[in-house]
Simulated scan of single mutants.
Amino acid sequence: MKDSSVQSCPVPDEQQPLKEYEQLKDSWFFRWATLESLPYWRKFAWVWLWGWIVVGPIAAASFPPQKHPFLFTLSGALGTSLLVALVLLRLYLGWYYIRDRLKSEKVFYEESGWYDGQIWQKPPEAIARDRLIVSYQIEPIMQRLRRTALILGILVGSGCLIWLSL
């Protein structure tokens, strides 16, 4: 049996905030934010390690590892942290977009193209349902991503302080 708010909804299926949320949480990349603690941190560790493939040669060209091993390691670590920060930013922006779509009382959608956008007022049941999803499902993810960004910022900041002290 379908929800009455969904039956009267003129928003195309793929643009409904609830469907967008389900697609996001099931997607390969955005699902990272929903993983248990160890697999979550393992994903970021893999990004950081694979980032060395890109950043390592640049760091080696700037600071030859034989002459300046500490500067090479520090510059490479800071460079790979930038890649981790970009991945983290992409995760955050994706979840932020869905959170805003679910929290909003009105939904913007396109009927057949960019030129004919419409706005749909959600019924009270849909607003309540969507806000519960935001409170209990998405906000913990957003907090986790903010904490991760804070930890990354502290690590990068301490790396920069070490760099300046050399």
Results as ranks from 00 to 15, higher is better:
85 A>Y: 06
155 L>I: 02
120 W>P: 15
99 R>M: 11
46 W>Y: 04
164 L>R: 07
159 G>F: 01
109 Y>K: 09
14 E>K: 11
69 P>T: 06
33 A>P: 03
126 A>V: 14
25 K>I: 11
140 P>T: 00
139 E>H: 08
85 A>T: 12
27 S>F: 07
18 L>T: 08
129 R>E: 04
81 S>Y: 00
7 Q>K: 10
114 W>A: 13
153 G>I: 06
96 Y>D: 13
24 L>K: 04
130 D>W: 02
102 L>I: 07
30 F>T: 00
102 L>D: 10
131 R>E: 06
22 E>K: 10
141 I>S: 01
67 K>V: 15
103 K>R: 14
22 E>R: 09
101 R>I: 13
114 W>I: 11
51 G>L: 06
110 E>G: 12
74 L>D: 07
62 S>Y: 11
108 F>Q: 15
64 P>Y: 02
151 I>A: 15
162 I>R: 00
25 K>T: 12
20 E>T: 10
144 R>D: 06
96 Y>S: 12
111 E>D: 10
161 L>Y: 10
151 I>C: 15
160 C>H: 07
140 P>H: 02
81 S>G: 10
147 R>A: 07
55 V>M: 13
158 S>E: 05
118 Q>K: 15
72 F>H: 07
134 V>M: 07
75 S>E: 06
12 P>L: 03
63 F>E: 01
6 V>G: 05
29 F>D: 08
159 G>N: 05
23 Q>D: 14
111 E>A: 13
77 A>Q: 15
137 Q>I: 10
66 Q>F: 00
138 I>A: 09
166 L>D: 04
73 T>I: 14
66 Q>A: 13
146 R>A: 14
144 R>C: 07
42 R>C: 12
112 S>K: 06
157 G>W: 07
84 V>S: 01
120 W>H: 13
163 W>T: 08
150 L>D: 09
